[in-house]
Design a protein around this nucleic acid. Sequence first.
DNA 1: ATCATTGTTATAGC
DNA 2: CGCTATAACAATGA
Length: 246
Amino acid sequence: MPEGPTIVYYIQKIKHLEGTTVLEAGGYAEADRSGTTNVKLRKISSHGKNFIFEFDGFFFTVHLGLFGSMLVNEEKKVNASFYLKFREEKINFYVSRVKRYEGKPEDFFDSRTDLLHNDFDEKLIYSEIRRLHQNKLVGDVLMDQNIFAGSGNIIRNEALFRSKIHPESIISAIPAQRLKQLITVTKEYTYEFLSLTGTGKIKKEAKIYGKSTCPEHGTEIKIIHPGKVKRKTYVCTKCQKIYHPK
DNA sequence: ATCATTGTTATAGC
DNA sequence: CGCTATAACAATGA
């Protein structure tokens, strides 16, 4: 079950297939797969929660949604929604959505917004949030894939707690230094998530997600479903300050 | 068996 | 048109 780091983790397992020949692409996903027989897979990369499989002139994205997964050289009981077959290996995707694009990934995705990309640009993200989302709840902005590509519900909860900001704070009321810090902390926690992926320790190491008491004060953690993104949100009102315009 | 879940998109309705 | 609410999709483990 995937947030951005999950995709990066999976890619580590298949990166060696970059530059090799795809014998066949298949699966029940309704994507145009013309020109994918006996062709070189030029590049395997990601943007946010999307895998990117690049061929000459076109590429596919694979998105795992909430329940998707990837297996290499193994099959599940259910049919794969997408697979790439190589001479000796096979990548299987389950419960995933596939989209074909004509052109190059950089024409569609801006790596400066990808939390796990070296190009991630904290200053750009800060100015985009100020430019576009002044009246929004910070909890919603942290789930916006156009701003924080790869962020998900766990990352959002952890980043807000670690930054001591209440998810229902309004962007315009958050002081510059606090908002900049939130962006930095979000990126840092995303890498922590990546380092824990595959160990089964993500929820265990979380400070607030899935917890009932605050690790700082032992006080009760509240569960709310705020804003537009009505996902489960954990809050310690003692630690997390709410910023509202006067 | 029932419930919840690391996500997104299409559609209806105001 | 723009916003929001709702449904829809589907696998797995507690």
